[in-house]
Design a protein around this nucleic acid. Structure first.
Lengths: 213, 213
DNA sequence: AAGTTACGGAACTAATCGGTACCGAAATAT
DNA sequence: ATATTTCGGTACCGATTAGTTCCGTAACTT
């Protein structure tokens, strides 16, 4: 026990990180296929090509494993597009979202996640922050620029706009089964642009909200 | 086999229909509280105040029971409002929806249902037809009248409009946890009205779009 | 009255499954 | 070499639980 700093090689055979990855990947697959908790550890071990021991050496319980697997889903950083056109910026982000949620993986994963989110708040937080927060932040920035640019009214309800952009997509994914495609992306983007267009008088540089709501 | 028409009294003690109702009601409660399949039959029996025998006398399996309980959820007939104002008609329906999905019952039920819908197509169909179809039909009629009235453009994308009206509500219910309230109802209704307003020049027959946004 | 079915409740059966223990072998350290 | 920790695999333990059976009793029909 001398000079054991925080990060030096422990004795014994080191853990195979391919095993780490195989476990998480197989867990993600099974969550998408049968549900968040509805798979057997035996099946997981078989699919990952590992022994149950390797799983329980890493995670103290199935709960821990599931939490880790969901945490490993965090999407990559979302870049804020800046094409100069509010419509194009919105479309870039919406097309990305459409692409993501069109995949078979997402189609299997999300319904199961939603069910579990209702009962596990920390899981709900993980999904919101890992999946959604990035895109919402990017959309917020695009909308903010749209307001600055005069394409959108300054008193726009941001939360509503974000939920109108994302809601129909999830609605189709989870409930109606409707198509998640380019038409949807363009439809909601254009709806936002027309629905939150600056009120009316198009003369000159009128920064006048003229709110008559 | 004489004169046994379809509906005559069988011999023996008849089934208590209060027991029928108690079983379904308790099942609905438990589905909302812990999940579609995640409750114990013992707990169900205890909550319904019946014996397990009474349950299995009616349903051959837990699966059958759950299916029946979900089927018993069908919402009442949705009336098509006709106030003369497209905006008011939309608001009536949206407020009703807000009211329904704001209840603790719905808040518990829907997430669990969605998860199960992903894996049980017949359950998904039951929910879509029992819960959604009526309201969608009513909204469709209101939108159609809005087009006739000149408040909405004739080439409106109906599927998109319906998903924009309903999507944000479910999105908040299932994912973001955002408020489901009057503001949401008005927000999406007005967005639809402005976003799908007739293109522009209202010359000639001045069927004003009932401009009260 | 006799026969039949339902009732709530309790005991029981049978299967599933999370988690542990152990195997011989492999990979690292000292 | 020796000690330690990993590996995949298998066997097992213990708890949970869907579904069954049986009890004494109540509600019906004939």
């Amino acid at each position: 026990m001398q000079a054991e700093s925080t990060s030096e090689r422990p004795v014994g055979r080191p853990r195979d990180e391919r095993t780490d990855r195989a476990i998480l990947e197989a867990t993600r697959e099974l969550i998408a296929e049968v549900g968040v908790y509805e798979f057997r550890t035996e099946d997981l071990a078989a699919r990952a090509g590992v022994g149950k021991g390797a799983i329980y050496r890493r995670y103290g319980s199935k709960d821990e494993l599931v939490t880790a697997a969901i945490g490993s889903l965090v999407s990559e950083e979302i870049a804020v597009p800046d094409t100069g056109s509010t419509r194009e910026d919105l479309l870039v982000l919406m097309r990305e979202a459409v692409e993501v949620y069109r995949s078979p993986r997402a189609r299997g994963l999300m319904p199961n996640l939603v069910g579990a989110m209702g009962r596990k708040p920390e899981l709900a937080r993980a999904v919101r922050e890992g999946f959604l927060a990035g895109r919402r932040a990017a959309l917020t920035e695009v909308l903010r620029r749209g307001v600055e640019r005069g394409d959108l009214r300054p008193d726009i309800d941001l939360d509503l706009a974000l939920d109108v952009l994302g809601g129909p997509l999830f609605y189709r994914l989870l409930i109606t089964g409707g198509p998640i495609d380019e038409q949807l992306a363009e439809g909601v983007a254009d709806l936002i642009l027309r629905g939150f267009a600056p009120s009316a008088p198009r003369r000159g540089k009128s920064t006048k909200p003229t709110k008559e709501n």
